[in-house]
Structures are given as structure tokens and as C-alpha cells.
Amino acid sequence: MSNSISFRLNGSEVSLKASGDEPLLFALRNALDLKATHFGCGLEQCGACVVAIDGEARYSCTLPVSALGGANVTTPEALGDDPVGAALLDAFEQEQAGQCGYCISGILMSAYALLKAESRPGREAIVSALDKHLCRCGAHGSILRAVERAAASLGGGA
């Protein structure tokens, strides 16, 4: 059975028909044609599917669309339109933070949620916020430097 679910997505109201247990990730990629959020493991183990929901980094691979009624969802597609997201994108480019790029969208969303909540995160807070992400390329050092750079550019200091 499908239900109509309404929520804000990247600043715009959306309404879609989805079965109650359909994961947000599938709705984003298939029904809404937003491809930046990736499927990794489907078990909340890798972080590739992380998006921001009401300012909090959340796994979209297991979160049912039915849980979103009225929520504010931000995906990687909207980062360039937000000062914090733009600072992160610039810093990730400057630090060359990432190699294959598969995990970066989820990492960016966790860093985005952190910097939206805390303007001056220390290294420990950044490490903690990104701990749920699996990056097999070994880009962790440049990823941490990129988040620190973004925080500093926004007036915070990591």
C-alpha cells in the first residue's frame, strides 16, 4: 500500500507516493532522481547513504520514507546553495579529500550536520562525527583537514 508523504527536500516542499517501509535512499534515487546519495551496505555500517534530516546526520538506507512527515531533508545536491555546504565543497577540493569519491557524499553530509550544529568543532568532535564512515581509499587525513579548513573559513576554528 502506498501513502502520500510530504516533507521539505533541499528547501522545497515535495510529496511522493511510497510504501511505508520504502527506504528514503530508494525514494531519493528512484522517485526523486537525486543520485548523489549512494547505496553502500544497506545496514548502517558504511555511511555512504547519510543525509541531513532536521539538521542531524542520518542513514537513509534504512530510514523509511513514512518517518519523514514534515521533516527537512538535505542531500548533497543542495550543499553548494548553503554557506556551510559551499565551504565544505571548497575545502574538500583544496585538500583533495577523497580518491574514488564513493563515500564522500555521506562524509560531506555528516560534516555539514556537524558544522551546522557546532561552528568551532575540535579535531576530536570532527573525528567522532565522521567515525561512522567507511573510506577504503585511505583519505582520512585529507578529509579531516578539509573539515577543519571549512570550519576555519566559516569563522570557526578546528
Rank of each mutant, 00 (worst) to 15 (best):
V127N: 01
F7C: 01
L63P: 04
Y102L: 05
L154S: 14
K132E: 11
G156E: 12
I104T: 00
R136Y: 02
A125I: 02
C61N: 02
V51H: 11
G157R: 12
L9N: 00
P83K: 04
A97H: 05
G157N: 11
I5H: 05
G42E: 09
Q99A: 15
L16F: 05
T37E: 07
R29I: 12
A117F: 01
L25Q: 08
A152E: 13
N10Y: 01
A87D: 09
V14S: 02
S2A: 13
V84I: 13
G69E: 14
A150S: 09
A67N: 02
M1N: 07
S128F: 14
G70M: 06
A139R: 02
C103P: 12
V84S: 06
R8T: 06
E77G: 14
K132D: 11
L79K: 02
F39E: 14
G155D: 07
T62S: 09
G157H: 11
S66E: 14
A129D: 14
P121N: 01
A158C: 07
Y112Q: 01
P23W: 12
G80K: 14
L34W: 11
I104K: 00
S12M: 04
S128T: 15
G138S: 14
P64W: 06
D131V: 13
Q99E: 15
A158H: 10
A97P: 09
A113W: 01
A139F: 01
S105R: 11
N72P: 00
L79G: 01
G122F: 11
E22W: 03
I107E: 09
I126G: 05
G42V: 05
C100A: 07
C46G: 11
G80P: 07
S60M: 09
S60D: 09
I143Q: 05
L154D: 13
T37Q: 09
A91H: 07
L88A: 03
A150N: 09
G85F: 00
A91F: 06
A57P: 03
P121Y: 02
E118S: 12
L43Y: 06
S153H: 06
A67L: 01
G101P: 13
A67D: 02
E22Y: 01
L89K: 09
P83S: 03
D54G: 10
